[in-house]
Computed example of a mutant assay.
Amino acid sequence: MVNYRKWLLLSGVSLFFISVSLSVYFGLKALQYDNKLTQLESSSKQTYHFVLIPEEMDNDYWRLVEEGAREAEKDLNVTLEYSGPVQADIEEHIKKIDMAIASKVDGIITQGLNENQFKPMINKAIAKGIPVITIDTDAPNSKRIAYVGTDNYLSGFLAGQALIKDTKGKAVVGIITGHFAAEHQRLRVQGFRDAVKNEPGIKIVAIEESNITRIEAAEKAGKILAEHPEVTAFYGTSALDAIGIAQVVERMGIAEDMYIIGFDTLPETLELLKKGTIEATVVQKPYEMGYKAVQLMLDIKNGKTISPVHHTETRVIHKEDLPLKQESLQRSVSRP
């Protein structure tokens, strides 16, 4: 009788341990299965590392491009690096592209400032399997996948048309441009020249470069006025040019008699437009450029075929077009 009871007790204990062991075993299996599912889900949501290389890191215009790209980074679950020259420097810019190639990033978004210099580096990235999208300034003869940004020739042409209308076809013009070697600046000048070339009352007497700083824009505007006191109008082709020109004409007390047309809608530009010192400015969409470039780069990585050219909106606004919210001018964008 005693042996029977011992047998029952041992059997119960054995069954208990077997039950616990099986529970632990199947629990571990379930946990391993859940981990595998998590790993599969994570791999299906792969994060790509893109780099945006601007002409100048702290330039207000490029900060707007970055803002758009950052918004896309958040919306599209990618990683974006923003890295470029502190001040505009083509050699430094090219070095940054080369560093991105060496780092084996998943995509490069940059300008094609001077095609002779940028084309070899863009083609090098493509040869290494790294897609390149040009932004703001194209390099159409390179192997870049796509361009996102303003039609720079058209924007210059629109500026020329606006000057003709606003001055009734009579003006002596000085031009301040960011860089003579930068393709987008060259196209903005060429478009402007073509727009006014058949207007007998309009004469372009000088062109200087500002190196994309308001200080040099002001210095060069002063130089033009000293050498050509007959100038009655200025055209600035980069974001800070019109601001620098405005500082000079206000200081000289000739703001009321001087026509200024510039580029972009930085807060200071809009204030000068409201004040009447700047007569008109060309509106670009830097925020949209940044967002769209990241969106297209992700499409490329996901195997989609994209168009090679994506022009963003360009138009000219005057004081009477204000007030327009900064958001509507700069940060509007179509999201996926």
Rank of each mutant, 00 (worst) to 15 (best):
G27Y: 01
I215V: 11
G262L: 09
Y4S: 11
L187Y: 02
N3W: 09
K274R: 15
V283N: 01
E71A: 15
I204M: 09
E71Q: 15
L113W: 08
V65C: 11
R331L: 11
T277N: 02
S332I: 15
V65Y: 00
E71C: 04
G156E: 04
K96H: 14
E268R: 06
S19Q: 09
V148S: 04
Y291I: 10
G160K: 06
G129W: 05
E41Q: 15
A239T: 08
P308C: 11
D194S: 10
I126E: 02
G169P: 06
L113I: 15
K119Y: 04
R315L: 13
D89R: 03
F180K: 13
V51S: 03
G149N: 05
K6F: 05
P85S: 03
D151F: 08
Q295N: 09
R186L: 01
A146T: 07
F118K: 02
E268D: 12
K223M: 12
E208M: 00
H311Q: 08
K292F: 05
E268Q: 12
F16K: 05
K203M: 12
L324Y: 03
I90P: 00
I224A: 05
L76Q: 06
L113K: 14
P140K: 05
I224M: 11
I133D: 00
L40N: 14
L273T: 02
I261R: 01
K95N: 13
F50I: 11
H179S: 13
K36E: 15
R5Q: 12
L15C: 06
F234H: 07
T38M: 14
T47N: 06
E279I: 13
T213C: 01
E55D: 08
I94V: 13
E327L: 13
H228Q: 12
Q185F: 05
L273E: 03
G107E: 03
N59Y: 03
V132H: 02
R331V: 06
K96L: 09
S11A: 14
S328C: 09
L272W: 12
M289S: 03
L240C: 04
I243K: 01
D241Y: 13
E227W: 00
A226R: 08
I245D: 00
L9F: 13
R214H: 05
L8Q: 13
